[in-house]
Computed example of a mutant assay.
Amino acid sequence: MSRSTDSLLNPSAKIALAVWSGIKENLIHTQPKKRPTYSPPLITLKATTMTILITGGTGKTGFKLAKLLHAANHSVLITSRKGVAPEPFKAVTFDWNDASTFENPFKADANINKVYLVAPSVFDALPVAKPFIDLAISKGVKRFVLLSATQLQKGGVFIGKIHEYIASLGVEYTVLRPTWFIENFGSLFIHSINNSNTVASVTKNGKIPFIGVDDIAKAAFDALLAEKSSNSDFYVVGPELLTYDQATEILSEVIGRKITHTHITNEQEQGFFRSIGMSPEYAAMLNGMEAAIADDAEEKLVGTSKTITGTHKLRDYFEANKALWTK
C-alpha cells in the first residue's frame, strides 16, 4: 500500500455553423422574378473540455496518472497540500485535514467530471472523505476511481468504508485494489536496507505479486477513460510471485551486496510502524494485512476474473534505481 502553474485547460472552442440556401429565379408568367434568399440565423455550438481531478496528484500513483492523461491530451487538475505541482500541471491547495480546502478544485475548474481518489491516511477515513465526495457529486462529478488495497474489503475498515459508500451513491465508480508496491523497497525499506542490509517482515514464505506504480496508474487511466464504467472493484497485481527472501536475493544480485529478509513478530512490526508515525490502529491493520501474506492471501488473487495484471518486474525496478541502495 500504501506537486507548475501552467494550465492544461483548453478554452471552450466555439464552432460557428453558417448555413445558407439560395432559391433560384423562377419564371412566373412572362417576367423573371427573384424570390428572396433564405438565411437561417447563425448557430453557435459550444464544445466543453471536461477535466479529471487527481487527489494526491504529486504522490506515487497520482503523478504517474497525471502524465499518462496529459500525454493523451486530457485536461487534468492536481491537488496537493501546498497547491503546487511540477510543470506542466496546474495544482490547487487541498488538505484532507482542512475541509475548507475541499471546494478549491471546483473553484479553479467548473468542468471537473471525474475524480481519482486517494483517501486520507487515517484509520477512520470515511467521515473525513465523505464531505468531499458529497461536494464533488453536487458539483457535477459523475465518476470516481478509488485507490484501495487487496486486503481491504468493501464495507470493511479504512478505505473499505469509502468503497462501500461510493458504491451506494449511484455514480459511476471503479475501485482499484493493488497488492504491495515494488517501490516500497525504495521508500518503506530503504533505511533498513542501507543501514542493516535487511528487509524485515512477518510474511514468512508467503508470495507476493509485487506491483509497480506505473501499472496502477495505467489501470486508473483505463478506468477513468472507459466508455462504460465497471462499477466494480479489481485486484491489481504484478506479473510474478515472489517471497521477500527471493526479492532480497534479486536485490543482492543487482547491487552487489548481500541483502537478507529478517523474519519478525507481529508485535515487532507494529512497533516499527508506530515508530514512523502510524497510529496504533493503523499499524495493527497494516500488520494484519502483511501477516495474511503468510497464509497465501496475495497469491490467491492472481489470475482471477477480477484481477488486472501489470507488466513491470521487480528486477527492472532494482536495475533502474540502483543508486537508492548504494552506500
Rank of each mutant, 00 (worst) to 15 (best):
G156E: 07
E183S: 07
V171I: 15
Y165K: 07
N184T: 01
L188H: 11
P178I: 10
G186V: 05
K154W: 04
T179N: 14
F185G: 05
K154S: 12
P178Q: 12
S168I: 06
E164A: 15
S192Q: 13
S168P: 04
T174H: 10
H163C: 02
N184L: 06
I159T: 15
V171F: 09
S187V: 01
F158L: 09
S192F: 05
L176M: 13
P178H: 09
F189Q: 02
L169W: 09
Y173E: 07
F185N: 05
V157E: 14
L169C: 09
I162W: 08
A167D: 11
L176N: 10
K161S: 15
K161G: 14
S192Y: 05
N184G: 05
N184S: 08
E172S: 13
F189C: 05
F189A: 05
N184F: 03
S196P: 00
I193A: 01
V171Y: 09
S187H: 06
P178K: 04
L188F: 15
V171H: 08
R177N: 15
I159L: 11
S196V: 04
G186M: 04
H163R: 09
T179Q: 10
V199H: 03
E172L: 09
F189S: 02
N184V: 04
N195T: 10
V171D: 06
L176K: 12
N195P: 00
V157S: 15
W180A: 11
A200I: 02
S187W: 02
V157Q: 14
P178S: 12
S187K: 01
P178N: 12
T198M: 03
G155K: 11
F181E: 00
S168H: 11
K154V: 14
K154Q: 13
H163M: 10
H191F: 10
I159Q: 14
E183V: 01
E164K: 14
W180P: 01
P178F: 07
S192H: 06
G155F: 11
N194D: 03
I159R: 09
Y165N: 10
I159D: 13
T174M: 10
N184A: 07
K154T: 12
G155P: 11
H163W: 12
L188A: 08
S196G: 00
I193H: 03
T174N: 10
L188P: 03
R177E: 15
I166T: 08
Y173K: 08
G186T: 06
K161H: 11
E164L: 12
V175Y: 12
Y173H: 13
G170I: 06
G170K: 05
K154P: 12
N184E: 00
G160C: 12
V199D: 00
F185S: 06
Y165A: 09
S196I: 02
T174A: 14
K154D: 12
T174I: 02
T179D: 13
N195K: 15
A200K: 02
F181C: 01
F158G: 01
F181R: 08
K154H: 12
G155C: 11
S192D: 14
F185Q: 04
G160V: 09
I193N: 00
E164G: 08
S196M: 09
G170N: 04
I159K: 13
Y165I: 05
G170T: 05
L176I: 12
P178C: 11
I193M: 03
I162K: 05
I162E: 03
